[in-house]
Amino acid sequence: MTLRPRDMSGHPPAIAPAYRSSRLRGPTQAPIAIPATPTETTGPVFGHGVLGPLDGDLIRNFAAPGQMAIGQRTIVHGRVTDEAGRAVPNTLVEVWQANAGGRYRHAKEGYLAPLDPNFGGCGRVMTDDQGRYRFETVKPGAYPWPNGGNDWRPAHIHFSVFGSGFGQRLITQMYFEGDPLVARCPIAQSIPAGGAERLVAPLDWEETVPMDARAYRFDIILRGPLATPFEATP
């Protein structure tokens, strides 16, 4: 598969002044277009064997035996496809997030909200042969961050996805339907033309488990092939 050149208009600009950290860290020159070579169309392959039994269960994967993380029980699931609509099977999806109070378990994080001794904030799953993935967690809290003003991140989960070639590598964030902070977030709003909406996961009532956990659906699209073949069966 050879990759179609990346459409930069769908991504935040390298320097988005309202997101202060990007001012000194975003390249000032446009990236140079190159052909996709074997270096970009191949990439690391991880077997399902890398996963431990609790890697997709953030409620329990850091908890003491018999304990669970505090927070709203949440299922996140979706499908990874490419720009041609084809499933991206057997690819690794890594996620990380704050706890229910909006605090990360990280040495550089000093927000007032307490750590939850039973929550690590890290998980990983693989997509199946249809590109589907699913994990369980607690809904992360919103948190304030130093950006020069009264800035709060909406509740979000960070996603890292591999795809089948190194040129498809993507990191993004998932937001939750109905969160008024998305519209106020300089990071989410750095995506042009209201594109933040594409990262808002709707509440999925079908998958919501009564008396247990609400579900959210988050589909991810990776870069696709140069020519769209007409087989295009997902």
């Binding site: 720009e83 993507l170 993004t172 594409r198």
Partner: peptide, 8 residues
């Protein structure tokens, strides 16, 4: 044809 998910 779909568009790549926005990066963050």
């Amino acid at each position: 044809t779909q568009r790549e998910s926005p990066s963050q």
